[in-house]
Design a protein around this nucleic acid. Structure first.
Length: 568
RNA sequence: CGGAGCGUGGCGCAGUCUGGCAGCGCGCCUGCUUUGGGAGCAGGAGGUCGAAGGUUCAAAUCCUUUCGCUCCGACCA
């Protein structure tokens, strides 16, 4: 893997394209690594694709070490498989669906649980054949409502997905652990700063789930973690201990209060001159069949993921059309309305509070949980926040931003039951297989690496992902410099070093700036100083350190540098 | 789907209100000069002004329709 820049197609851009919203998006475009084809759809140019392949290779090596076998599943899936699992409808418009000339329905695979389960269900029949673990690296297509941030949220993207099949939960636990460890090695080898966090399983279903988050300010996900005990969870799932209220406000008599136009918690706090802990926030939700009224304290945010998990209703969403003639903005849990009441645990600890009166322009104060209303379900449905107590120890939770690059699930039997993938046990009795699934966003990892590692001049590739390890800049037209460069290039090439030589007749400024933009970890400059002293200049892109090295010592120096970086 | 905005050379934009030769910067080509942090001068190529229809002597500009894109929101293994 070596190249002369005079022959390479690396169309860099000096100006920032307007479409670029985040650093990775801008730098991938400016560095001539990707080009947009349509909204959320990108082509990879030579340099960008090299990085993708590096990530893929690391993934392959580590997964094979963990005992997974590589397969390649189709992009186009028949509707029947998805109808069988029930996700043809459940997934909704996230899938790109199409018909062939005979009017048969297909979708382009947004994920591969169905196809994978179908593949093994007719072949794997005995507990003796289990467990099995398969992976593939595939292009996935998801009709995202709003693709954005370049490769971070694209319509079409490359993903490694793996599926394991087991005869027992214990067996799944072992593989899950192995995959967890393999993922850790993968992201370590990629040179990324990441955290493993407890995650919500979402529409995938299943029990345990962990996400692998690359830490970056521009991340779309929020993670709460405790630096005392190491607890870490996505905010979608995180729990916390909330301190007791300091001042207690005496309970007033139950009384209706005229509150015209007070339809938000903010307005109600102002109107009543009460903290949010003394207000009931009532949110109307609609599930597959029922309507629900979710109640949290006014100071809390309802966590929709927790609510969905609690109710087990994947169709749940805010009921924007309202319910019967109840006035939006003035809802309350008390009274006869026929709604199922889901209350947060902290709501039940409230001494009293103000709730909507279920009557336009009125609220009621002095409402007491348990006395004035009794929830059908009580559970944790609020979002934990920065500064609250760690659920596992006495520490405090802190919030950081992350990019989800990996996600592993204990799926259980959701797909094996619906798709009838069963095995026979020692007694000849059939059971649904127990499944795990494991994903890594390959192209997203490339973008995350840049989000985490860049400066105002460009990308700073971690060495294991860099398209080239070394860039050689020749400055000036002196024939001796050119000859010497040719020698260095050939010599490093001979040592197996991935090197790109900027042999163009560009001015020094152009070469320096492009080298910084492209983010090649080690820069070797040969120019005037070499003619004077016989030394070449090395610069570490990552920590910006310079070294002057005698040309005879160069190959050893470079090998040593690459070796040390690889280890660290 | 709701709200806002944008489509003019490869990229970034002005021109549109008030109709009258299609412009600027970057990039590209040629030549000369320049060569340690995105050079200077001179010359040059490149555009159905997103598309369709209409108004007008005349449309990038006004009107109608339509397509695409971007941002905010809902949504998002």
């Amino acid at each position: 893997m070596t190249m002369k820049m005079s022959q390479a197609y690396i169309p860099t851009l000096k100006e920032r394209p307007t479409e670029a919203e985040t650093p990775s998006h801008e730098l991938l475009l400016r560095g001539g690594m990707i080009r947009r084809v349509a909204a959320g759809i990108y082509s990879f140019l030579p340099l960008g694709y090299k990085v993708v392949r590096k990530v893929e290779q690391i993934i392959r090596e580590e997964l094979e070490k963990a005992g997974a076998q590589e397969v390649h599943l189709p992009l186009l899936h028949p509707a029947e498989l998805w109808q069988e699992s029930g996700r043809w409808d459940e997934m909704g418009d996230l899938m790109v669906k199409l018909k062939d000339r005979r009017n048969r329905d297909y979708c382009i695979g947004p994920t591969h649980e169905e196809v994978m389960t179908d593949l093994i269900r007719n072949e794997l029949k005995s507990y003796k054949d289990l467990p099995q673990n398969f992976f593939q690296i595939q292009t996935k297509v998801r009709d995202e409502i709003r693709p954005r941030f370049g490769l971070l949220r694209a319509k079409e993207f490359s993903m490694k997905d793996a599926y394991s099949f087991h005869a027992s939960w214990e067996s799944l636990d072992v593989t899950y652990r192995d995959m967890h460890d393999a993922y850790c090695r993968i992201f370590e080898r990629c040179g990324l700063d990441y955290r493993v966090v407890e995650a919500d399983t979402g529409p995938m279903g299943g029990t345990d789930s962990h996400e692998f988050m690359v830490l970056a300010e521009t991340g779309e996900d929020s993670v709460l973690f405790c630096d005392n005990c190491g607890y870490a969870a996505n905010v979608e799932k995180a729990q916390s201990k909330v301190p007791k209220l300091k001042e207690k406000i005496d309970r007033p008599e139950k009384e209706e209060i005229y509150t015209p136009g007070v339809t938000t918690i903010e307005k109600l706090m102002e109107k009543m001159n009460l903290p949010g802990e003394y207000l009931f926030k009532s949110l109307l939700y609609k599930g597959e069949k029922d309507y629900y009224l979710a109640i949290v304290r006014g100071s809390d945010q309802l966590n929709e993921n927790k609510l969905i998990a609690l109710l087990g209703d994947p169709f749940l969403g805010l009921a924007e059309d309202g319910y019967r003639d109840l006035p939006a903005g003035f809802l309350g849990p008390q009274g006869e309305h026929g709604l199922k009441i889901i209350a947060d645990e902290l709501v039940m600890e409230m001494d009293w509070g103000v709730a909507g009166a279920n009557r336009e322009d009125y609220h009621i104060q002095g409402i007491v949980p348990g006395r004035d209303f009794s929830p059908d379900i009580v559970g944790d449905i609020r979002s934990a926040r920065h500064g609250e107590g760690c659920p596992d120890c006495q520490g405090t939770l802190e919030e950081i931003r992350g990019i989800e690059v990996g996600h592993i699930f204990k799926l259980g039997t959701k797909y094996s039951e619906s798709m009838k993938a069963s095995f026979l046990d020692e007694n000849g009795k059939a059971h649904p297989m127990i499944m795990g699934c494991y994903g890594i966003g390959v192209t997203r990892t490339v973008a995350a690496a840049i989000e985490q590692n860049h400066d105002e001049n460009g990308i700073k590739w971690p060495l294991p992902l860099a398209p080239y390890q070394v860039i050689l800049l020749t400055l000036g037209k002196d024939e001796k410099l050119n000859e010497e460069s040719e020698k260095i290039y050939a010599e490093l090439k001979g040592k197996g070093i991935e090197i790109i030589w900027d042999d163009r007749s560009e001015r020094p400024g152009v070469k320096f700036n492009e080298a910084d933009l492209l983010g090649i970890p080690l820069r070797i400059t040969i120019g005037k100083k070499f003619l004077d002293s016989g030394q070449v200049e090395l610069k570490d892109r990552f920590n910006n350190q310079d070294h002057m090295v005698d040309k005879d010592d160069l190959p050893d120096w470079v090998l040593k540098y690459l070796g040390e970086e690889e280890k660290s």
